[in-house]
C-alpha cells in the first residue's frame, strides 16, 4: 500500500535514504489539516487561518472536510466520551502518513474538566505527535506547533512507517463499530511486555489525573 511499501520492498536502503529528504520536504510543505473543530480551541484554530496569523505561509491553510484528504488532525477542544469513537474513526479514515496535534489543555489532559464526561487526554484514543498547552492556546501557538510538526516530518524516514500500515489495516473500522481489539503479533508482544511491566503502554499514556488517582 502506498509509495513507502513499494520503495521499501523493491529498493535498497541507500536510495530510500536519499529519497527521504525529497518525500519529507514534499509532505511538510503542504500539510492539510482535517476540520475537526470541537470547542473553544476551534475558534482559535479558525483564527490561525484568518488574516492576522495566516497559516497558509506554512502550507497548512487548506482545511479539508473529508478525512480522506487530510494529513494532520488538529484535535481542538475537549473530547467527550460520546465523541471519542467518532474521533477514532475519523483518524482511521485518514490515509497514511498522518499526524495528530492535540490542541489545548482539554485535548491534552482533560484540562479543568476532570469529570465523567470528558476523556482525560486524546492520547488515550489516538497517537499524538504535538501537544499544545494553553486554554485556549493562542493562534501563534498553533502556528508554532505546525512548524514543529514540519521539523518532525523532516526527521522521519519512510522506513519508520512500515509498521503503521499493518496497524492501520487492522484498525480499519466497520461502520458502526469500535476499532478492532485483538491485535497483531507485534501488538501482542507489546501487550506481554506491558503485562510484565517491561515497557510503557504505547499511545495510552495515563494522564496526570489518572496517575494521581491510581497512586
Amino acid at each position: 500500500m502506498g509509495l513507502e511499501n513499494n520503495i521499501w520492498e523493491s529498493l535498497p536502503d541507500v536510495i530510500t535514504v536519499k529519497l527521504d529528504a525529497v518525500i519529507n520536504w514534499a509532505r511538510k510543505s503542504s500539510i492539510w489539516p482535517a476540520t475537526f473543530g470541537l470547542a473553544c480551541c476551534a475558534i482559535e484554530m479558525m483564527n490561525s487561518v484568518s488574516a492576522r496569523n495566516d497559516l497558509s505561509r506554512f502550507g497548512a491553510e487548506t482545511f479539508r472536510a473529508s478525512p480522506r484528504q487530510a494529513d494532520v488532525m488538529i484535535v481542538s477542544g475537549r473530547v467527550s466520551r460520546k465523541m471519542a469513537p467518532v474521533l477514532r474513526r475519523i483518524y482511521d479514515q485518514m490515509p497514511e502518513p498522518k499526524w495528530v496535534i492535540s490542541m489545548g489543555a482539554c485535548a491534552t489532559s482533560g484540562g479543568v474538566f476532570d469529570n465523567y464526561a470528558i476523556v482525560q487526554g486524546v492520547d488515550k484514543i489516538v497517537p499524538v505527535d504535538i501537544y499544545i498547552p494553553g486554554c485556549p492556546p493562542r493562534p501563534e501557538m498553533l502556528v508554532h506547533a505546525i512548524t514543529m510538526l514540519q521539523e518532525k516530518i523532516m526527521s522521519e524516514s519512510v522506513k519508520d512507517r512500515k509498521d503503521t500500515f499493518e496497524e492501520e489495516s487492522r484498525h480499519s473500522v466497520v461502520p458502526g463499530t469500535l476499532p478492532v481489539t485483538e491485535g497483531t503479533a507485534l501488538e501482542r508482544e507489546i501487550e506481554e511486555e506491558v503485562a510484565q511491566n517491561k515497557a510503557p503502554r504505547p499511545y495510552t499514556v495515563p494522564s496526570k489525573h489518572e496517575r494521581r488517582r491510581s497512586s
Binding site: 466520551r81 471519542a84 469513537p85 477514532r88 476532570d114 469529570n115 465523567y116 464526561a117 476523556v119 482525560q120 488515550k124 484514543i125 469500535l178 476499532p179 481489539t181 495510552t204 489518572e210 488517582r213
Partner: peptide, 18 residues
C-alpha cells in the same frame, strides 16, 4: 444519571476505547 448527588464526579471508571 450524572447530576444525582450520589453519582461520582469522575464516573465509575476511566475511559477506554475497548
Amino acid at each position: 444519571h450524572a447530576l444525582r448527588k450520589d453519582y461520582p464526579l469522575r464516573g465509575y471508571e476511566p475511559y477506554s476505547l475497548t
